[in-house]
Design a protein around this nucleic acid. Sequence first.
DNA 1: CCGGTGACTGGAACGTTGGTCCGGAGAACT
DNA 2: AGTTCTCCGGACCAACGTTCCAGTCACCGG
Lengths: 234, 234
Amino acid sequence: MVGKGSGSAGDVWLRPPARAAREAPPLSRDRIVEEAVALLDEEGADRLTMRRLAERLGTGSTTLYWHLKTKDDVLDLALDAIFAAVEIPGDNGGHWRAAVTALISGWRAVLLEHPWSAALLGRPMLGPNVLARSEFLYATLVKAGVVEPHLTAAAYGLSNYVIGSALMQATWTARGRQAAAQTAREQFQAKSDRYPVLAAHGPLVADGDWDTSFTIGLDWLLDGIQAGTATGEE
Amino acid sequence: MVGKGSGSAGDVWLRPPARAAREAPPLSRDRIVEEAVALLDEEGADRLTMRRLAERLGTGSTTLYWHLKTKDDVLDLALDAIFAAVEIPGDNGGHWRAAVTALISGWRAVLLEHPWSAALLGRPMLGPNVLARSEFLYATLVKAGVVEPHLTAAAYGLSNYVIGSALMQATWTARGRQAAAQTAREQFQAKSDRYPVLAAHGPLVADGDWDTSFTIGLDWLLDGIQAGTATGEE
DNA sequence: CCGGTGACTGGAACGTTGGTCCGGAGAACT
DNA sequence: AGTTCTCCGGACCAACGTTCCAGTCACCGG
């Protein structure tokens, strides 16, 4: 038995390699967040553990607390990080409607690419990426001639709609949930006496109908916004 | 020292009172869920613990597992339970728009009365209360003459909109968050060079403007739905 | 070349959580 | 009286987020 008394300054072979000799770049907030996003993408929200995250980074779990205060920090940072992928449209020749559609669609795409994000939407989103895109949305609407109280209603309405849509879709298409959705659909058929309309026009759309429904609803909102502008033109 | 050897059949005084002689009604799923809702209302989602819940019910924590399989069950049941308070409108003389507005507004009111519910919206809602109200929504839209693909788009659009709205509002008005919202607003002013439009037309509405914005957006959606019906009349 | 300082790291440990095991008490039905 | 079913809870477990503190490294002024 190797004596425990040999202490931490024991054999060279047992000590970790010198810092400079390590392969991975040094730890940093960005690297932690990047790995957290990867971990969330691969394994889902409930598998994100400080220990697991640290293990993937090749460090001890407690080390993370030098760079971050709590696990919530990781989640907040990861949530904002993914929105960097939402392209901010350029000036489409003043076609505000196209610009807004592009932004909202991109927003939705990101949320669906990272389904774990849906469960995190209940926390304040004040990261730089989110704010920059909110800024663009507001600016585009203002330039289109939308004024209060329609301005706030439009910005919030669009955000709320995309958030709700992504949340709902992520809920029903999450890994391992398809089976549940199938079961649910069968339940409707079985209890068709109690839920006749649901059984007939089954919700829980099966395939890519999500996209169609989303686009239709988005256009309704945009129509309403457009009708409220001074000119009403595109 | 009272001998540990006296065993569980020791002094009467140490034994719990006979089951029939107890004050509280016997445990049941319904009673557990009811208490869970109360606990969530009073202390929020993160304070809901199986142990705390059991304590409030005057039982041991492990007992709960006789009536429920997991903690998720409690959450699912609690979430569905609160929707019993959403009144299903009667037949408003065929005014489908008034009926839908009433249902969606009631839905929103319940979500805001129980702010913890917003964080739970990411789970499948298949409880009887939710299904009954979905059934009513679908039926009302069908009767109004809405047909596919507008039917699914309308039902989902309305649901997603109300869910997103409640989630967002609950996020920013949660207990102890007002201070954060105030700080955020000041941040916009401070960084007004980076977020000029946000600083000017500050989002994060302060007061009851939530209601106004919600109603405007809801009307936009309803206008769009109405325009798609065969008759277009109310 | 040295000694110290501040940036980082991680093993051990704490308190709490969701959940299981199992031994039992009470009532109900033979 | 005995058996069975329903219900209860103490002891226990693995895992979690987080803190403590003893370190190790890179660098910097003498």
